[in-house]
Design a protein around this nucleic acid. Structure first.
Lengths: 191, 191
DNA sequence: CAATGACCAAAACAACCATTTGGTCACTTT
DNA sequence: AAAGTGACCAAATGGTTGTTTTGGTCATTG
C-alpha cells in the first residue's frame, strides 16, 4: 500500500462525509474512521480541515470545467454554445451530491469556508463565459459589450430561471429555458 | 382630539421605530411611549403587532405604486417606460429608510413577517411590470412572450445590476444601467 | 520513521435562571 | 358608559455557567 493510496482513501472518505453532512458537520474523527486511518495520519497529508476541504472542492471545480469544455462545439453558434455550457453547469450543480449539500449549507448556515467555495465556483463559471464572449466579440458574432458584466448577468439570469422561478411557480422545461435565454439575451424583445 | 388622531399617532410612532430598529427590535412598549399613549390603546386600533406592521407596509407599497404610476408617460417607448419605472422603484427602495431597514432585517435575520413583506413588495412590482408588458404586446410594440415570467426576469436582472454587481465591483451609473437594460433586453446581443 | 490515538485548548452546546416582550384586563378618567 | 391606561402574566428571549465535542498535536509504537 503506497502513500498515494492512503491519501486517496482520506480524500474519498472526506468527500463521502462532506457530501452527506456538509462541511461543519463532518468531523476529522469521522473522516479518520471512514478512511480507516488514525486521525494524526490525515495531518501528515493535509495542513488542516480547510486544506482537505479545498483539495476536494478544487477537484470538483476542475470536473465542472471539464464538463463545460466537453460541451463545446465550435460549429455551433455562440448563443447555442453559451446556453449549453450554462445548462450543463447548473445541471451539474443540481445533480452532484457534494455540490447540492454545500450550496445548501452556504445558504442556510453561512459557513465561511463554504461561502468561499461558492464564490470560487461562480467566479470560475463567469471567467469561462467571459472567455466565450470575448471570442464571439472578436469574431464579430455578437455586439460589443463588457464581457465580464455580460457573463455576470447571464449567470444571474440563468440562475433566476432555473432556481428562483420554480420557488413560486411551475419549473421550466429545458427547451423552454433555452428558448427564453435566446429570446431575452440574443434576439431581444423589440420587434 | 378625535379618534383618527390617536390612530395616526400610533402609526407614525410605529413607522419611526420600524424605520430605526426594524420589526423585531421594535417593542409595543416603545411604540406606546413614542406615541404618548397607553400600550392597551394600540390594541383598540390594531389586533396585534403584525397587523400594525401590515397597515404600515401596505401604505408603503401603495406609495411605491404611486411613484411607479407617476413616472408613466405614454408618449415614450415601452422600454423607456419600463426602465424608468424599475429604476424609480429600486431608487425608492434604496432611499426609503423603512424599506432599507426591512430589507436588511429580512436578509440578515430572516424575520418571517418581514420576509412576507418583501414577497408582497416584489409581487407588486412584478404585477405592475406584467401589466405594462401585456399592453405593449397587445399594441404590437414588443414580441409575444409570457408577461409574468418576463416581468420576473426583468426585475431579477435589474436587481442584479443595481445590488449584486456592486458587491464585488464598481457600482454602475444610472445611465449605464439604462443602456445595459436596453442592450440585453430589447435589442439583444446578436448582430 | 510513518502511523497512531490519547491528550489538550478552544469552540459549541445544554441547562439553568433572569429579563424582556406581546398581549390582556381590571381600573381610572373623561 | 365609553375610551384610555399601565400593572400584570405567560411565553419568548438573552445571558451565564458547566459540560461535551472538535480540530489539531505529539509522545509512543510497530
Amino acid at each position: 500500500m503506497a502513500i498515494k493510496d492512503k491519501r486517496q482513501l482520506i480524500i474519498e472518505a472526506a468527500t463521502e462525509s462532506f457530501s452527506l453532512f456538509g462541511y461543519k458537520a463532518t468531523t476529522m474523527d469521522q473522516v479518520a474512521r471512514l478512511a480507516n486511518v488514525g486521525k494524526g495520519t490525515i495531518y501528515t497529508f493535509f495542513e488542516n480541515k480547510e486544506e482537505l476541504f479545498n483539495e476536494i472542492v478544487n477537484t470538483l471545480i476542475s470536473e465542472m470545467k471539464r464538463v463545460a469544455e466537453s460541451t463545446l462545439d465550435s460549429d455551433k453558434r455562440f448563443f447555442e454554445q453559451t446556453n449549453h455550457v450554462l445548462y450543463k453547469i447548473l445541471e451539474f450543480r443540481k445533480q452532484h451530491q457534494l455540490t447540492i449539500k454545500l450550496f445548501q449549507e452556504g445558504r442556510d448556515m453561512g459557513t465561511p469556508e463554504v461561502i468561499g467555495f461558492m464564490q470560487r465556483f461562480e467566479h470560475t463559471i463567469i471567467a469561462y463565459i467571459k472567455e466565450l464572449l470575448q471570442k464571439a466579440i472578436d469574431k464579430g458574432e455578437i455586439k460589443q459589450c463588457d464581457p465580464e458584466l455580460t457573463a455576470f448577468v447571464m449567470l444571474k439570469l440563468y440562475k433566476s430561471l432555473i432556481f428562483d422561478w420554480e420557488l413560486s411557480r411551475d419549473p421550466l422545461e429545458k427547451e423552454e429555458i433555452i428558448r427564453l435565454f435566446d429570446l431575452y439575451f440574443f434576439e431581444g424583445l423589440s420587434i
